[in-house]
């Protein structure tokens, strides 16, 4: 489904700010896998997701989605295969446009944008059903300007948008980190049910170890631009928070391991 072969990313190469953010990552994710990603601050988690999304070209290595080499394809052309939700709830939606306009933009991901109507009545019906399933009462607010919704509502809408045009991959980058605990739990629940119902392959970065353990069927830990722990299947089900802390201490060489080191 998703395959990374020896992927490197160097930022500001040749300058004093040079930073090697990915150091030859190899990763193979199977269809339908739900992978949670953890690691300390600056470990390269976001860089990994951006590499997959095509935010910028990688420095070295190859990326395949569904067997197709996408290494040379920019983000907007990969978008038909990929749904994304960012940490900042403001980034995922167009605040000055209406709820239905935002959904319609997402619904046309990967299709040609011509001179047909931006939103059709059939689509409105579909959007209303999908919004009702979120259970946030948004189905009657199709023409509301997105900017007037709360952060949690916007994140839920972004999730819906990310899944709307049947992507092959869903990329979630700490998408609940900016929300209050109750809202975060709700958005996480929605994420989980969307991934299940749409049978999506998903990569989810989280700073919450409990979530990383309880959600998904595979867990990877990153450190200094590499994947250092990769657990799936029965091992993942048996995993405890203490195991994870221990593993982190092992790879990072940290003696007094605390949550804050790992979570930051």
């Amino acid at each position: 489904m998703l395959r990374l072969e020896n992927v490197w990313k160097v930022f500001d190469q040749g300058t004093i700010n040079q930073k090697v953010a990915l150091k030859g990552v190899d990763l193979n994710i199977k269809d339908g896998e739900f992978v949670t990603v953890i690691g300390g601050n600056g470990a390269g988690k976001s860089t990994l997701l951006n590499a997959v999304a095509g935010t910028w070209p990688v420095t070295k290595g190859r990326i395949f989605i569904d067997g197709k080499d996408v290494t040379g394809i920019p983000d907007y052309k990969r978008a038909s295969m990929i749904g994304r939700v960012f940490q900042d709830p403001m980034l995922g939606t167009a605040s000055e446009m209406q709820l239905e306009e935002n959904l319609a933009l997402a619904y046309r991901r990967g299709k040609k944008r011509g001179l047909g109507w931006g939103v059709t009545n059939e689509e409105r019906k579909l959007f209303r059903e999908k919004l009702a399933a979120l259970g946030l009462g948004l189905e009657d607010r199709l023409t509301t300007q997105i900017g007037t919704l709360s952060g949690g509502q916007r994140q839920a809408v972004t999730l819906l948008m990310a899944s709307l045009s049947a992507p092959k991959l869903l990329l979630l980058d700490e998408h609940t980190a900016a929300l209050d605990p109750a809202t975060a739990a709700k958005v996480l629940e929605i994420s989980d049910s969307i991934v299940r119902e749409e049978k999506l392959t998903c990569l989810m970065i989280t700073h919450n170890m409990t979530d990383a353990i309880s959600l998904g069927n595979r867990l990877i830990m990153m450190n200094e631009g590499n994947i250092v722990v990769d657990i799936s299947g029965e091992d993942k089900k048996k995993l405890t928070k203490n195991d994870l802390l221990q593993k982190f201490a092992d790879v990072a060489g940290v003696q007094e391991e605390t949550d804050s080191v790992l979570l930051s």
């Binding site: 907007y76 403001m90 980034l91 446009m97 306009e101 997402a106």
Partner: peptide
């Protein structure tokens, strides 16, 4: 569709790229 895409680009380029 095209006009909406132009408005979205002005409003939020990050989101617009992510939506293809």
């Amino acid at each position: 569709e095209q006009g909406s895409a132009i408005r979205a680009t002005g409003n939020n380029p990050v989101m617009s790229s992510a939506q293809g």
